[in-house]
């Protein structure tokens, strides 16, 4: 069996992209050098007014180093993770490189003598955000692996896998929810939103895009529906499907205890260092679905043992 190299290729491409974006930005800055002021604004206050200036060379070097190095540090993290995580990491790295390039170099090359310099000039916001999304999406798609075929023989369900004692004619299903704890989430949302809204109101309107984006992400992550039925496992919220494991790809189901920070480095839809995919909303009991030829999928639900038993029963019937 040959290993699917695409996740690795995508990660390498993203690692190359960061210095390329930095070099392009530098070239662009040199191309318009004559039109730029002698001293370039490199830092802006809360009110949107520049408060620190430096020479052309200094400003360009700083922008180039940040654009190249920050994404590369993430590439380093990506190489330590399970290989199935390389595609998603590549998407984040590539998107970040483009975003930093657009933000940092856009803020430099748009400056003109005698005009107030803007941190993120409006004419750069939309192209940067669109290109960031396109590059991230492209790398993510490139880095996706095709799961191995399940046609033909399949391993029988392990004998110790919990299942339900019901007649074969019974239709089975299970529904549950994975929800973030309300109070800590609200506190965190306010703590994050207040400074963002403050900065946005004070003089950086583009920060609204960031604040609204984060708010939308939180709203979608707040609570997910978890269903187990003859089609397999599905984790979805507000019409968005986080994970779908068709029944024919399920090897078995089990329960585990999750520690969000230690196992996944946080909450929400996550990829662990070991490649496990997880929808993690709290510590404690979780349903684990072992997939055929792919990493486990995990979701924090109450009564996970019941969900596992339903899934195992359905798998045993199908095999």
């Amino acid at each position: 069996m040959t290993t699917d190299r695409r996740p690795t290729h995508a990660l390498v491409a993203s690692a190359v992209l960061a210095p390329v974006v930095a070099a392009s930005g530098t070239a662009m800055a040199y191309a318009v050098r004559d039109r730029l002021p002698d001293e370039l604004a490199v830092h802006w206050g809360i009110d949107g007014a520049p408060d620190r200036f430096t020479s052309f060379t200094g400003a360009v070097t700083t922008a180039a180093v940040i654009t190249a190095v920050v994404p590369l540090a993430l590439v380093g993290l990506g190489t330590l993770m399970h290989r199935s995580a390389r595609g998603p990491v590549a998407a984040i790295v590539g998107g970040l490189a483009v975003f930093l390039g657009g933000l940092l170099f856009g803020g430099l090359v748009a400056q003109r003598p005698g005009q107030a310099a803007q941190a993120f000039p409006p004419q750069w916001v939309a192209p940067t955000l669109v290109l960031t999304a396109l590059v991230a999406l492209g790398l993510w798609r490139w880095g996706r692996t095709t799961p191995p075929g399940t046609a033909g023989h399949r391993e029988p369900l392990p004998a110790d896998a919990a299942r339900l004692d019901v007649p074969a004619s019974t239709r089975l299903g299970w529904t549950g929810r994975a929800s973030l704890p309300v109070r800590p989430t609200m506190v965190l949302a306010v703590v994050v939103a207040l400074p963002l809204v403050w900065v946005a109101l004070a003089g950086h309107p583009w920060v609204w895009v960031l604040a609204i984006g984060l708010g939308a992400l939180l709203a979608v992550t707040l609570s997910a529906r978890v269903t187990v039925d003859a089609a397999g496992l599905r984790v979805s919220s507000a019409g968005f499907t986080w994970s779908k494991v068709p029944l024919e790809r399920v090897a078995s189901a089990d329960t585990t205890t999750v520690r969000p920070m230690r196992d996944f480095g946080g909450w929400g839809w996550r990829i662990g260092m070991d490649g496990r995919r997880g929808y993690v909303t709290r510590g404690g009991e979780a349903l684990v679905v072992r997939r055929l030829g792919e990493s486990d999928v995990l979701v924090t639900v109450d009564d996970a043992d019941e969900a596992a038993a339903v899934l195992n029963t359905l798998v045993a019937r199908a095999s």
Binding site: S169, T170, R171, L172, T175, D303, E306, V310
Partner: peptide
């Protein structure tokens, strides 16, 4: 929660 129905019942 667990859902089960037996159409033959």
């Amino acid at each position: 929660m667990l859902w089960q129905v037996d159409p033959t019942s």
